[in-house]
């Protein structure tokens, strides 16, 4: 084996430097300015009675297909469900009381839907920008430019995106749109929050909701786990949960506080910021090519036309 010569060394180190750039890149949050106007919903799972009125209201507001059983049918709660292309939100039941001070109750209920993250992974992932974060905080989907690559579904840490796999020509990604009206934005009235009879769901400005949630935690330490789920998870979400038991017991995931999108964006922008590295690499390669061509033509001038390659060909030809 030939020892490492200068050229090879240079090549390797350049490659290493270029590829190591992402390691040192800082995460930039200025791709994702956070607005104080973001809306959200506070879900207090200790109050949910599992009536599924939120599912029914969502179904009606979004003109989703009629279900085979009415929403008052509690049989549906017996299986663990996830949002699908015809159900943007579902309620699941879990055995055990919702909080320590409600020990007589046998069941806890928890609603699942798009969390409308502050730094949405799906928005960062979308190749054409079909998913966007609106000014009021809703994460919206625009099917007209979507190509159906489903990278957003890979990206979502909550796994709430659903796809219309059975539509051949115009399948869409389906998820909660926060009842956004094109003119008015989310307005004041997401269907689920309006329908909830016990006001388990409280819609409002996210900062206000955090204040309310902290107040509840302070006033009832015997009732709640001292944590607002969604305050910081994956960079913060629009939908906030108060629970009386660990979130993993009611079908939610333990997620880190760092928004995953920041990681890939740091790597991408670290490598490709202003195109410096690619252009520099291009220049380097072009330089090497030029150098080798000059050397070749110089050798050709010296040696004459290159010898014909013999038909047998020898095994170990020089470089």
């Amino acid at each position: 084996m030939k020892p490492l010569d200068r050229r090879t060394f240079l090549k390797l180190s350049l490659a290493a430097a270029g590829a190591a750039a992402p390691l040192g890149a800082k995460e930039k949050k200025d791709n994702h300015p956070l607005s104080p106007d973001y809306v959200g919903v506070l879900v207090d799972t200790t109050l949910c009675i599992g009536c599924r009125k939120c599912e029914e209201a969502c179904n009606r507001r979004n003109n989703l297909p009629r279900t085979s059983e009415p929403f008052s049918d509690r049989e549906a709660l017996r299986t663990f469900r996830r949002p699908t292309e015809s159900a943007f939100t579902v309620v699941n039941q879990f055995p055990g009381s919702p909080s320590p001070d409600q020990a007589v109750l046998p069941t806890t209920y928890a609603k699942v839907q798009c969390m409308h993250c502050l730094i949405p992974s799906c928005v960062s992932a979308c190749i054409v920008g079909a998913l966007t974060k609106a000014a009021d905080g809703a994460v919206l989907y625009n099917p007209s430019i979507c190509i159906g690559c489903r990278y957003c579904m890979v990206a979502c840490p909550f796994e709430v995106l659903a796809y219309e796999y059975d539509t051949p020509l115009t399948p869409k990604v389906r998820k909660c749109q926060f009842c956004t009206d094109r003119a008015k934005g989310t307005g004041a009235n997401p269907a689920c929050a309006a329908a909830c009879p016990t006001e388990t769901l409280v819609f409002g400005n996210r900062a206000d909701l955090l204040a309310i949630a902290h107040k509840r935690l302070e006033e009832r330490p015997d009732r709640y786990v001292q944590h607002i789920y969604g305050e910081n998870e994956v960079g913060g979400t629009g939908w906030l949960y108060l629970t009386g038991r660990p979130v993993t017991e009611i079908g939610l995931l333990n997620l880190p506080d760092r928004a995953p999108a920041l990681r890939t964006e740091a790597i991408q922008h670290g490598i490709f910021k202003y195109g410096i590295l690619p252009v520099a690499f291009y220049g380097t390669l072009a330089g090497i090519m030029r150098y080798n061509r000059r050397r070749e033509s110089a050798a050709a001038e010296e040696d004459g036309p290159p010898p014909e390659v013999s038909s047998t060909g020898s095994k170990e030809k020089g470089r």
């Binding site: 054409v128 920008g129 690559c149 399948p171």
Partner: peptide, 20 residues
């Protein structure tokens, strides 16, 4: 691709944060 007929969109709709 679900909406393969939109495959030309990335040429005009740029989303610079996306790896894809």
């Amino acid at each position: 691709l679900g909406r393969y007929w939109n495959i030309w969109r990335p040429i005009f709709n740029w989303q610079g944060n996306s790896v894809l």
